[in-house]
């Protein structure tokens, strides 16, 4: 009886996953084997052409470039996020909640507005350029906006809070006795950090990194606004196939490739976490 009750409780959750995750994925996979009709609809003749198109040089380059941008964003988000998380952990307990609250504060305003704020800061007539010119540090405005660099800045900025939170949760679970033991045995602070603290908090680092990577590689708003539409990421390419090129089957095959990459990474992460703990 108890098991039955438990199973009944599972139904809403499973139904949700089936309707909003499994079903759309099946739709996308099946769509990807057809072709675009002349006026954008779908011609139902089964073929693998979309997949041979995905591996064409033009599109493969976008996939590689998106991975590069997502990797750099993840790497720097961890680099900036780790010290922040460590600092919050080391802060007196009464400030920790306040500091964590500050980390989450940007989410109270709209993502688009925050991205536009970066455009105002970075453009060649913008705040940063105006200040640098007025201080006579540079003569000509720097072209920061509409480059890969500005896209990466936008992605790091946007996902940094997630990284800080995931590393913080790892760091705060750290057993203090281990650190004291290391110091008692004569380890310097640096040695203790690299040989004890860092390895033990790697699950948080990995979770944070994968999180930024997976969200960045599929992002299309930041590259569109901060990249000026000149740098397509795989997310933009998919968006364009569905909304401008109206080539749903090709968009579906690109989505399937992207979903596979994400699943693979999440799978790796879970293996990694299991191995460490």
């Amino acid at each position: 009886m108890n098991t039955l009750k438990r199973n009944i409780l599972l139904i809403p959750g499973l139904a949700w996953i089936f309707i909003f995750l499994i079903l759309p994925c099946i739709l996308i996979i099946s769509l990807s084997f057809f072709e675009r009709g002349i006026y954008g609809g779908i011609d139902y003749n089964f073929n693998f052409e979309n997949y041979s198109r995905v591996v064409e040089f033009t599109y493969l380059k976008i996939l590689l470039n998106s991975s590069k941008i997502a990797f750099l964003s993840g790497f720097f988000a961890v680099l900036f996020g780790y010290p922040a998380a460590y600092f919050i952990y080391k802060a007196p307990a009464k400030y920790q909640i306040a500091l964590l609250f500050l980390v989450m504060l940007p989410f109270w305003s709209n993502y688009l507005i925050r991205t536009y704020a970066w455009m105002v800061l970075l453009n060649n007539q913008g705040l940063i350029n105006t200040i640098l010119i007025n201080l006579n540090i540079i003569k000509e405005p720097l072209n920061i906006l509409y480059t890969e660099f500005s896209v990466i800045i936008g992605l790091i900025y946007n996902y940094l809070p997630f990284v800080i939170l995931s590393i913080y949760s790892s760091v705060s679970k750290l057993d203090q006795n281990l650190i004291e033991a290391s110091k008692d045995l004569g380890g310097s602070s640096i040695k203790t950090f690299f040989l004890v603290t860092l390895p033990l908090t790697l699950p948080g680092v990995a979770a944070g990194f994968i999180f930024v990577f997976v969200l960045s590689i599929g992002n299309f708003i930041t590259p569109d606004l901060l990249g000026g539409g000149k740098f397509l990421m795989i997310g933009n390419l998919i968006y364009d196939q569905f909304l401008s090129a109206r080539d749903w089957p090709f968009g579906a095959s690109l989505s399937f490739v992207l979903i596979s990459i994400m699943l693979f990474l999440l799978f790796l992460q879970s293996i990694f976490v299991r191995k460490i703990s």
Partner: peptide, 18 residues
């Protein structure tokens, strides 16, 4: 442009992707 619409869409994707 009739059936060339497919080619238009593909060509634009390639320009934006390059």
């Amino acid at each position: 442009v009739g059936s060339a619409a497919k080619l238009y869409a593909k060509t634009v994707s390639e320009i934006l992707a390059d």
